[in-house]
Design a protein around this nucleic acid. Structure first.
Length: 463
RNA sequence: GGGGCUGUAGCCAAGUGGUAAGGCAUGGGACUGCAACUCCCCUAGCAUCGGUUCAAAUCCGUUCAGCCCCUCCA
C-alpha cells in the first residue's frame, strides 16, 4: 500500500506500527447542522481507505470524534458560538441539536454505504481525558497559565511547523484583518488548552477543572480520543486539507508533548468538493445536503460513484451536469453488471489476475478512478465468463461499496401484474395498436418499471 | 502579503521521462412499430512562454488562472 503522507509531502510505502492491527483516526463532523455533500466526500474517501486496508488484509481499528460542542460561527470569526446560533434557530439545547444532527449524519452514511467507525465518541464525553492531558502538559512545562486560560507553548516544540510547511516568520507576515489578537499569549501562535475566560461569554457547556470552571480548547478532542481508544501510537490520521493548519499541527504538538514520543506516522488529507464559488462550506449558509439530491431523484450511490470517479487529493467541482454524467455512467455500469448471467464455470485464474489489477490500482494511494476503469475493462473482456465476472465484481465491491450486484426485489403480486401488462402490450403490438402499446409502457414507467424489448422477448427492470 | 495545492478533449478524469487509459455527452451504424436498453465505430497532443534531454503532459524556471490555509471552526 502506497499513500501520500502530508507529513513528508510524498507518496510512501505504508508500514504500520504493528502487523496485527492498523489504527486509523478520522476527524469527525461538527454536528450543529447537516453535513453537506462536500463533508460526505471526505467521509467517503476515509471509508474507501478503511475498506482498502481491510481488503489488503489488515485488521483496522478506527476511531472518530463527534464534535458536539460550540465553535465560532463560520470561517469568519463573528464572535458567536456555533451551537448557540443553531440553538436560537431551532429552540433546542446544544446537546439536543448535536444528537439530532448526529443521527442525520449516521443515516447519510448508511445511504452512501459508509461503514460507521468501530469507535465513535462525543467530544463532550471525554473532558476527564482533556484535563489529564492538560495537567501533564503543565507539569512538563509545555503549557502555561495566562489571565485565566491555559495555553500550549509552541516554542517548546521544535518541530511544530513540520506538517504545515509553514514557518513562523511567514505566519508573522500574515495579514488577515478579520482576526482578533489574544494579548495573553507568549507567542502569537500558542493555542488554548483550557478556557476560563473567553470572548464567548454565553458558552452553554462548561466543566469544573483544576484550572477553574470553563471548557477545553477543542483541538484536544482528537488527541484525547485517539490516544485513549487507539493507543499511544497511531498509524494514520485523516481529515480535510483545511485541518492541516492549525488543527492537526496543534494535535501533533500536544499529543507528542504529552506522550513524550512520536505519535502518528501518516497524515492523509482529502481535498474539497467545490461549488461555483469555491469550497462548499456550512458557514456560507447555502450548501447542498444529500437529501436534496435524493429529493431530486438521485440515488445516493450515484453520488458515491461521482466521488470515486476522481482522486481524493484533487479538488472536485460539483455541478448537476457532472452529477448527471456520473449518474448515467453508474446506471449503465450497474445495468451491465446485472445483466450478467449466473453461467459458466468459475475461473480462479482470471479472478486472481483481475484482483491483482484492482489491488495495484487501489493500493496506489487510493486510485479509485483507475479501479473503476478496471471494472469497465472487465465487463468488456470477452475471455472472462459471466460467473467469474460476477465473483470478481463482488470482490471489488467490498471496497467500492456501490451495490453493483444488488438486485431490487419486486413483490410477487406486482410481478404478476407487470407480466400481465406485458402480455397485453404484446397483443396490442401484434395488432399494430401501437397507441395502446405505448400507453401501457408509459403506465408501467410511471410505476417505476422500465420495459426492454429484447430478441428473447420483453423484460422489465426497476427504474 | 506569506505558505500549500491544482490547470489534460464539450464535461469529468487516469497517466509523473519513451510517444495520450476510462466514463459521460455528441455524431455515425446495428437492433426497434417508434423508443428505451444493449452493441459496434469516430473525436485531444496535455494553460502559457522558455530551458534540460536522444526523448517531456511528465523534470526546472516564467507568466496567467482557480482553490485551500495563515494566532479561540475543528
Amino acid at each position: 500500500m502506497r499513500i501520500y503522507n502530508s507529513l513528508t509531502r510524498r507518496i510512501e510505502e505504508f508500514i504500520p506500527n504493528s502487523d496485527k492491527e492498523v489504527t486509523l483516526y478520522t476527524c469527525g463532523p461538527t454536528v450543529y447542522n447537516y453535513q453537506h455533500i462536500g463533508n460526505l466526500r471526505m467521509y467517503i474517501f476515509e471509508d474507501v481507505l478503511e475498506k482498502t486496508l481491510r481488503y489488503l488484509g489488515y485488521n483496522v481499528k478506527r476511531a472518530m470524534n463527534i464534535t458536539d460542542v460550540g465553535h465560532n460561527v463560520g470561517d469568519v470569526d463573528v464572535g458567536k458560538d456555533k451551537m448557540f446560533a443553531a440553538k436560537e434557530r431551532e429552540g433546542k439545547t446544544a446537546l439536543e441539536i448535536a444528537e439530532y444532527y448526529t443521527e442525520v449524519f449516521k443515516k447519510d452514511c448508511e445511504k452512501v454505504n459508509i461503514k460507521w467507525p468501530d469507535i465513535v465518541k462525543n467530544a463532550t464525553g471525554e473532558v476527564e481525558k482533556y484535563i489529564d492531558i492538560i495537567s501533564r502538559l503543565l507539569e512538563k512545562g509545555y503549557a502555561y497559565e495566562s489571565n485565566g486560560n491555559i495555553y500550549f507553548d509552541i516554542s517548546k516544540m521544535p518541530n511544530y511547523y513540520e506538517l504545515s510547511g509553514k514557518n513562523q516568520e511567514d505566519l508573522m507576515i500574515a495579514k488577515r484583518e478579520d482576526v482578533d489578537i489574544d494579548e495573553n499569549k507568549r507567542n502569537p501562535f500558542d493555542f488554548v488548552l483550557w478556557f476560563t475566560s473567553s470572548k464567548f461569554k454565553d458558552q452553554e457547556l462548561q466543566w469544573d477543572s483544576p484550572f477553574g470552571k470553563g471548557y477545553p480548547g477543542w483541538h484536544l478532542e482528537c488527541s484525547a480520543i485517539s490516544i485513549k481508544y487507539l493507543g499511544e501510537y497511531l498509524d494514520i490520521h485523516t481529515g480535510g486539507v483545511d485541518h492541516i493548519f492549525p488543527h492537526h499541527t496543534n494535535e501533533i504538538a500536544q499529543s507528542e508533548a504529552y506522550l513524550g514520543h512520536k505519535w502518528c506516522n501518516y497524515f492523509m488529507h482529502g481535498e474539497f468538493l467545490n461549488d461555483l464559488t469555491g469550497k462548499m462550506s456550512k458557514s456560507k449558509g447555502d450548501f447542498l445536503i444529500l437529501d436534496t439530491l435524493i429529493n431530486k431523484g438521485y440515488n445516493p450511490l450515484e453520488y458515491r460513484y461521482y466521488c470515486l470517479l476522481s482522486h481524493y487529493r484533487n479538488q472536485l467541482p460539483f455541478s448537476y451536469e457532472m452529477l448527471d454524467n456520473a449518474t448515467t455512467s453508474y446506471r449503465k455500469l450497474r445495468n451491465r453488471v446485472l445483466s450478467l448471467k449466473q453461467e459458466g464455470v468459475f475461473n480462479e485464474e482470471y479472478f486472481n489476475i483481475y484482483q491483482n489489477k484492482f489491488k495495484v490500482a487501489i493500493s496506489d494511494d487510493l486510485n479509485t478512478s483507475n479501479a473503476l476503469t478496471i471494472v469497465h475493462n472487465l465487463l468488456k473482456d470477452e475471455t472472462v465468463n459471466d460467473i467469474t465476472k460476477i465473483k470478481i465484481i463482488g470482490d471489488f465491491d467490498k471496497v467500492l461499496s456501490l451495490d453493483l450486484l444488488k438486485r431490487e426485489t419486486i413483490e410477487e403480486g406486482f410481478k404478476k401484474y407487470i407480466q400481465q401488462k406485458i402480455e397485453e402490450r404484446n397483443e396490442a403490438k401484434n395488432n399494430k395498436n401501437y397507441e395502446l402499446a405505448d400507453k401501457i409502457r408509459r403506465e408501467l414507467e410511471e410505476k417505476g418499471i422500465i420495459l426492454k424489448d429484447t430478441k428473447e422477448g420483453t423484460i422489465f427492470e426497476l427504474k
